[in-house]
Amino acid sequence: MTDAAEPMAAEPVAAGRIRAAGGTRLGLLAPAGLAVALVALPLLALLLRADWGHVLDHLADPAVLPAIRLSLLTTTTTVVLAVVLGTPLAWLLARAQGRAAAWFRALLTVPLVLPPVVGGVALLMAWGRRGVVGGPLYEAFGVRVPFTPVAVVLAELFVAMPFYVIAVEGAMRSVDPRFEHVAATLGASPWRSFSRVALPLAVPGMAAGAALAWARALGEFGATITFAGNFAGRTQTAPLAVYVALERDPQAAVSLSLAMLVVSIVVLALLRGRWVR
C-alpha cells in the first residue's frame, strides 16, 4: 500500500544547490551551534548534576512509582482517545473547503498557544463542580470530575489533541484525492475508500502525530495542577511529582527527571525506527 505513494515522491534536490558558499555556511554554523547548545546544555546538566549513587533510592520513593504509572496510564489513554476522535476530525478537515473548516482549524490552534494554566482554568469552568457541563453532571449524578484521573486525561487531551489533529491533517492532505476517486470508480463506498485507501497512506503521519501528542501529554503540568489538582497516586503525574520533590529534596527531583528523560527517549526511539523519520 505504501508503495502507491512512491510515484508522488518529491524530486531529489540538486546536491550542488545545497552546498552554498563557505562563508554563508560559517555564518549559519554559529547560530546553529548556539541553538544546539541551548537545547543540549540543560539536558547535559541534568546528567552531570545527578546523584548517580542514589538514583535508584530516589526512584524507590513511595511517591515516584505511582506518579510514573499514572503518567503512563493517562498519556496512553490520551493518545488512544486522540487517535479515535482526532483521526476522523483530521480527515474531515483535510478534505473540507471553505470558511467553517478554517474556523475549526483556528479553534484547534488555540490550545497550542494558550498558557496551560489558562487551559486549566477553562477546564474548571467547563467540567468543575460548578462548571458549565460539570455542574449539571454533579447535580444529577453526583459525579465530580476535578481531582480524578479523568480530569488528568481531559487536561492532557485539551493540550495534546490539537497537536495530533494538525499533524494528521497535514499528512492526510498530502494523500492524493485521485486515489479515492479511482477507488470510487472501482465501486468502493466512501467509508471503504477512507478506511482502505486514505487511512493506510496516512499511517506514518498518524504515528508522528501520536508521538507528538504523547510527548505533549507527558509534559503537561499547568492545566493538570490547576484542574486535576495534585494528589499522589490519583492526580499527581510525573511532572507534578518532580515539582513537589524539588521543594523537599532537589536531588530526588533530578533523579525523577532522569527517569522521565529515559522514558521519553525510549518511546521516541521505538517510534523512530518504525514510523517517525
Partner: peptide, 11 residues
C-alpha cells in the same frame, strides 16, 4: 478526605 495537595496557600 483530601482530594488535592496544592503548591501554595493561594492555590
Amino acid at each position: 478526605h483530601v482530594v488535592s495537595r496544592e503548591v501554595d496557600v493561594k492555590a
